[in-house]
Design a protein around this nucleic acid. Sequence first.
DNA 1: CTGAAAGCGCTAACAG
DNA 2: CTGTTAGCGCTTTCAG
Lengths: 329, 329
Amino acid sequence: MTITIYDVAREAKVSMATVSRVVNGNPNVKPATRERVNEVIKRLNYRPNAVARGLASKKTTTVGVIIPDISNIYYSELARGLEDIATMYKYQTIISNSDNDPVKENEIFNNLLSKQVDGIIFLGGTLSADTLAMIQSTSVPVVVSGTNDGDESLPAVNIDYAQASTEIIERLLEQGVKRFAFVGGGYSEKARQDVQAGIERVLKEHNLALDPAAVYKGNEQYLDGEKAFNALKDTKPEAILCISDEQAIGIVHAAQDAGIKIPEELQIISFNNTRLVQMVRPKLSSVMQPLYDIGAVGMRLLTKYMNEEDIEDKNVILPYKIDYRGTTK
Amino acid sequence: MTITIYDVAREAKVSMATVSRVVNGNPNVKPATRERVNEVIKRLNYRPNAVARGLASKKTTTVGVIIPDISNIYYSELARGLEDIATMYKYQTIISNSDNDPVKENEIFNNLLSKQVDGIIFLGGTLSADTLAMIQSTSVPVVVSGTNDGDESLPAVNIDYAQASTEIIERLLEQGVKRFAFVGGGYSEKARQDVQAGIERVLKEHNLALDPAAVYKGNEQYLDGEKAFNALKDTKPEAILCISDEQAIGIVHAAQDAGIKIPEELQIISFNNTRLVQMVRPKLSSVMQPLYDIGAVGMRLLTKYMNEEDIEDKNVILPYKIDYRGTTK
DNA sequence: CTGAAAGCGCTAACAG
DNA sequence: CTGTTAGCGCTTTCAG
């Protein structure tokens, strides 16, 4: 029924070892033999069984991808970059949603390891102590993209979040902005902390402080933007920094609905830089993260680990740009 | 090094068959034995090798998902529904981007089959003759969600696109709208045709016809909305039906930038119903497709095929609703 | 350049 | 309830 390497060998009058060599591009096969084998492969429509191959070779050419929410554009954009590179290096990807739930995340790691993936790339979530311990005890390489583990022990690809927020705040201060608000949370607590740290650093240099009431944590979706706006409006912010674009758009609309002029009375800037930023009026100002590249470079880094190549730099910091569009002055 | 079922067996002083039974929840094990085995499993931190298991059992509890573009919200929303059901039934998913390229699509099918997936779910793309032939010649079940193959031979989950467009056109005609335009294309040619057929049917009943110059095909992204608007504006449409939300939003903005009042002078309605519809002002009117369910039901259908359950209905038509929001009168 | 043979780690009859 | 025994389909020494 399903035809195997053995069928091909018999039909081509060679041993299965030779068929294996042909299939794997081993040069030690006489051209004539190779041709004959290839002819039989085509004729019989032979398709190598990757599972058997994986068992025998202890390599599956498969990498696992852990993502908090695939329907979040930020992550699907990272996934896109990473997939392209994976394909380029002939790896398949198993993408799993963790829902940012530590238990699910742990299960996913377990599944992935039991599937014998050659590597894992982690795009955001919690990375509980349990999971971290599991990672430490396995020899399967793990790379983190677009977020960070708590102690930065894992190889990672990121931008400098703190630096970006620092820059933004400095500019706003020059404009005379006094009251800031910060909205973040959700999938990457570490990035959130970095951004907040950056804000507080500059503010402190100017003998100012971030009002705790002006810090909103919560989900990162559109409707959470409304909630955030309502929660913050009593602090009368003149500028809001918001991690998520989608949520920032919610804030823009909630503010507009409340009769607040953007950017004249309220400036808004986001960090995710998905293609949503151009889909609002005024267009959303944001930190231009190279999303595709964060995914792509992460996967490239992982391939280096999987092939045991030299790693120059296990922590890659990619450049960012700040694009001041319509929601800032 | 990596510990196997054999190590557990030796340590627990049972045969590997017994360990296998415990791991697989086979009831034919004395509780005391089961407990002892479980203790050893935990102590040794044994993790079954899914690859070996797959080879021996000829089942991988993995399904392949083929998607034209994971960063397209429409598809990532389907993927979300499908993933949840897959997880519920203990299947893992391998998601691959086809980029709507027949060659890549074919390769993906090949890879998936060589990985011995238990089933495949197809979310949109081309389904070339080659690929269709490959599907026919394999015993691995394939289900299509949110689109259709040309001859509807494969099990599929959809809404009635033609009916939806018919309804929309009838309403617009009642309002006295005379000049229609249609924008579609991209990932599901079949859905596009269905929508267009629906439009033309009603128009014909009213002795009208769709101006060929008022039909625009192309990509489905925001910037393509601008292009579409420019290409169509000479036909002076009073209403535009557009498959993609993202593209529809592009049209809305392009029209607004041209000084056209929406919905007074131009009505716009889309079909994808992603959460983008609420992220524009005015809010986008659209056909409310049950995206999550289209994915979820597709996966459920696939599990039935994989378990060889009875199938009542290989073509599932899910209900839709039309939500007339701000971009229609 | 080619073949023989020994597994990879597990499941699944088959006995008992 | 438990153990023995064949494989699953392929890669990989090791000889020659």
